[in-house]
């Protein structure tokens, strides 16, 4: 009789990870099974699908839900009650819930949080990293573009005489632009081949912090490389165009 009562008190619903952890062959066979915990012997009365109990940083682990059958048990053990409500009526809902809570558990203070805010808190670090990396990416691109513009300007100035000679010999504007941009496009290509493995290593290390994470697609690298190539093309073309427009006579005259 004692055992029966105890069993009745210790009904458990477990998740699929727990079924696997216990080494039971499937969910169906787990029902009715007994296991020992610090509270004594427990009996499985149901199995539910796995869900994330904690943040996505950690794996879905074995999980046991403690089922309470009696009113007094519920009143005694319940610390939190989850309520789903329609959006836009928080004030009325809170007032209603407070009233109900005071009637349900008069010895406990009424406290509440919102689930979406709690979930947000789990990822606040990632939010900060996201904002910070956005700013840093912008600054990096800005510095790279300024550096590229400086380098292109320097090289174009160094090659003003050569451009003048080529123009004198009949090179068209597009010939000149092709020569200057061609050289820089090679540099961009080499830079990308160095940057891609480095970015892959850093990103895959970072993603390892998450039990569940996105996969890295090749097109992301291709896209970033293409953006760099387009920026280079625009900057070099503008500079090459400006130098090419100089009168070849005036460029060579004062040598």
């Amino acid at each position: 009789m004692k055992t029966k009562t105890r069993l009745k008190k210790c009904l458990r619903v477990i998740n699929e990870a727990m079924v696997e952890y216990m080494g039971w062959p499937d969910n169906q066979s787990a029902i009715g099974k007994k296991f020992h915990s610090l509270r004594g012997q427990e009996r499985v009365v149901g199995v539910f699908k796995n869900f994330n109990v904690k943040s996505l940083h950690s794996q879905r682990k074995p999980f046991v839900l403690n089922m309470k059958e009696n009113d007094w048990e519920i009143r005694y053990f319940a610390a939190w009650v989850a309520v789903k409500y329609l959006p836009g009526s928080e004030k009325e809902i809170l007032a209603f819930l407070e009233e109900k809570w005071k009637a349900f558990a008069p010895s406990r203070p009424f406290d509440y949080t919102f689930l979406d805010q709690e979930i947000d808190k789990l990822y606040s670090n990632e939010e900060k990293v996201s904002t910070l990396s956005g700013i840093l990416t912008f600054l990096t691109i800005l510095i790279a573009v300024l550096g590229l513009f400086g380098l292109v300007s320097f090289m174009a100035d160094q090659r003003t005489r050569e451009i003048g000679i080529r123009r004198t010999l009949g090179a068209t504007l597009s010939n000149i632009i092709r020569i200057i941009t061609g050289e820089f496009m090679w540099l961009v290509l080499i830079a990308n081949f160095i940057a891609w493995p480095a970015a892959y290593l850093v990103l895959s290390n970072w993603l390892k912090n998450f039990a569940y994470h996105t996969s890295m697609n090749f097109w992301v690298y291709l896209l970033s490389g293409s953006i760099a190539a387009v920026l280079t093309l625009i900057i070099t073309s503008v500079k090459a165009y400006n130098v090419s427009r100089l009168n070849p006579g005036s460029v060579l005259k004062y040598e």
Binding site: G164, I165, L252, E255
Partner: peptide, 11 residues
């Protein structure tokens, strides 16, 4: 064209 300083491309 023939220039005083040749204007050949060094590279």
């Amino acid at each position: 064209f023939v220039f005083q300083n040749f204007n050949l491309i060094d590279e």
